[in-house]
Simulated assay, not measured.
Amino acid sequence: MKNQDKSLTPSPTLYTVREIADILRIHPRTAYRLVQEGRIRGIKVGSQWRVPESSLLEYIEYGLQAAPKKEKKDGKDGPEQLKLPI
């Protein structure tokens, strides 16, 4: 018997639009619109969209980079708020 040396590449994690909505804590219709418009890259399998984890992370990273750095003028301590491009 031959020793087969096949490297198995792991399958990418694919999310449904509903899972994307849950992760981003947005309405499913908003998530669907983002995917349909190409703002979050996805692939269509039949009639349903699937979003690779890398595309979701890319979208989040883009939102972090696009957020302007603001200095706090009121002197209040609080969390910095970032806005994703929705």
Rank of each mutant, 00 (worst) to 15 (best):
K2N: 03
K2T: 03
K2Q: 02
N3D: 08
N3A: 11
N3S: 04
N3T: 06
Q4P: 07
D5L: 13
K6S: 15
L8Q: 10
L8W: 03
S11N: 14
P12N: 10
P12D: 14
T13N: 10
T13K: 09
T13M: 12
L14Y: 14
Y15H: 15
T16V: 00
V17M: 03
R18C: 04
R18W: 04
E19Q: 14
E19L: 01
E19I: 02
I20L: 10
I20H: 01
A21P: 02
A21E: 04
A21G: 05
R25S: 09
R25P: 00
R25M: 09
R25D: 05
I26R: 13
I26G: 05
I26C: 08
P28C: 04
P28R: 01
P28H: 03
P28E: 07
R29P: 02
T30C: 07
T30P: 01
A31L: 06
A31T: 07
A31I: 06
R33Q: 06
V35L: 00
Q36I: 03
Q36C: 01
G38T: 12
G38H: 12
G38Y: 09
G38L: 09
R39D: 03
I40R: 09
R41F: 13
R41A: 15
G42K: 02
G42R: 02
G42W: 05
I43C: 00
G46A: 02
S47A: 11
W49I: 00
S54Y: 04
S55I: 13
S55H: 14
L56H: 15
L56C: 13
L56Q: 14
E58L: 08
E58Q: 15
I60Q: 14
E61D: 11
Y62K: 05
Y62I: 05
G63L: 15
G63N: 10
L64C: 07
L64M: 10
L64F: 10
Q65A: 13
Q65V: 14
A67L: 04
A67T: 12
K70H: 01
K70C: 00
E71W: 06
E71P: 00
E71F: 02
K72N: 14
K72V: 05
K72A: 12
K73Q: 07
K73D: 03
K73N: 09
D74R: 08
G75D: 09
G75R: 12
G78L: 08
G78R: 15
E80P: 06
Q81Y: 06
Q81V: 15
Q81S: 03
Q81G: 00
L82R: 09
L82A: 10
L82T: 06
L82D: 05
K83W: 05
L84T: 05
L84Q: 07
L84C: 01
L84E: 06
I86S: 05
